[in-house]
């Protein structure tokens, strides 16, 4: 075959692949927006579900997702930041410990999310919770069952790598001469970290936090049996309460409800809300990250 023709064909084939992926992305967005937009209004966002979840809004699912991701962030961010500081500032690249930690972080990043759910069930609920009940509650079941705390902590483990990676990247963009300036002034290592490194990586910490929240808001598998509930007539009042979540709501409404068709508008609108939420969070994070990378150059 003519070489030029072959070049053209192959190039088009690769180009078509790109277009196909973009087409899929656009379709998902278009379908979700078309299906969800008409039903998206203030009452939908601010009301409880009604009539056996066939009517009404998703207020408790929004609140549940927000609270769960917030507790998750409170747990994941400090640990993630500290681990990132260790990897960037204390560990030498070649040390076995640093390599093991890196491998562990990567492992956490690829372990299927359902495994985190199993772990949350086996560890937080079956081990920690049961023991707390046995010791402090005289065996009465309180912490040894699914709740928002265990779900959030489970999710925190899942999102830990997200935080670590973002923060470490940001720390590494801080120029070496800033650290040298501080050390040459007689600052100790910790003083340098506190006064130069951490202030310099604030945007990275923010990026990591936002990405983690966005990831945590979208994940369902880890909370399937660690704390999410189909329907609650009330918002969670304490850490030992269950909660509703947007993602779980979509799953339940689209697969488990007795009349899937009747609730289609609710399903689409809930999906749209979740998509808007994760997209806007990702959008902010990507912008921040872009600015960090620009600084690195």
């Amino acid at each position: 075959m003519n070489r030029n023709l072959k070049d053209k064909m192959v190039e088009s084939l690769t180009g078509i692949s790109v277009l196909l992926i973009i087409f899929i992305i656009v379709s998902i967005l278009a379908v979700t927006i078309a299906g969800g937009w008409p039903n998206l209004n203030w009452t939908f966002l601010s009301e409880f579900p009604k009539d056996g979840m066939t009517k009404g809004g998703i207020f408790p699912a929004i609140v549940g997702t927000a609270v769960m991701t917030l507790i998750m962030a409170v747990a994941a961010v400090p640990f993630g930041v500290i681990t990132a500081i260790y990897l960037a500032e204390y560990a030498s690249e070649k040390s076995v410990i640093a390599k093991s930690i890196r491998f562990a972080v990567k492992t956490l990043a690829v372990v299927p999310s359902i495994i985190f759910g199993l772990f949350g069930l086996g560890f937080f609920i079956g081990f920690i919770g049961k023991n707390i009940d046995g010791i402090f509650n005289g065996g009465e079941l309180k912490w040894g069952q699914p709740n928002i705390l265990w779900a959030s902590l489970t999710m925190a483990l899942l999102t830990l790598p997200v935080v670590i990676v973002s923060v470490e990247e940001a720390i590494r963009t801080i120029p070496a001469d800033m650290r040298e300036a501080s050390l040459a002034l007689g600052a100790t290592k910790w003083q340098t970290i506190r006064k130069v490194v951490i202030p310099g990586s604030v945007s990275g910490i923010l990026t990591g936090t936002i990405l983690a929240i966005s990831r945590g808001a979208g994940e369902v598998a880890p909370i399937l049996f660690t704390g999410a509930a189909y329907f609650l007539s009330d918002l969670p009042h304490s850490l030992s309460d269950q909660f509703m979540s947007l993602g779980y709501h979509i799953y339940i409404m689209s697969t488990q409800s007795s009349n899937v068709d009747a609730t289609l508008p609710i399903q689409f609108a809930t999906t749209l809300v979740l998509l808007l939420l994760t997209f806007s969070l990702n959008g902010i994070a990507v912008t921040l990250r872009y600015r960090i990378r620009k600084r690195a150059k």
Binding site: D177, E180, A181, S182, L183, A184, L185, G186, A187
Partner: peptide, 29 residues
């Protein structure tokens, strides 16, 4: 390093105010 100070080829002030730059050393002390 407090006794033996160092000035670098590329000036490297912190991304802080003039005042905070100079006060950095006294403050850590």
């Amino acid at each position: 390093r407090k006794k033996v100070g160092m000035i670098f080829q590329k000036s490297n002030p912190f991304a802080k105010s003039v005042y905070d730059n100079v006060a950095f050393g006294p403050r850590i002390n």
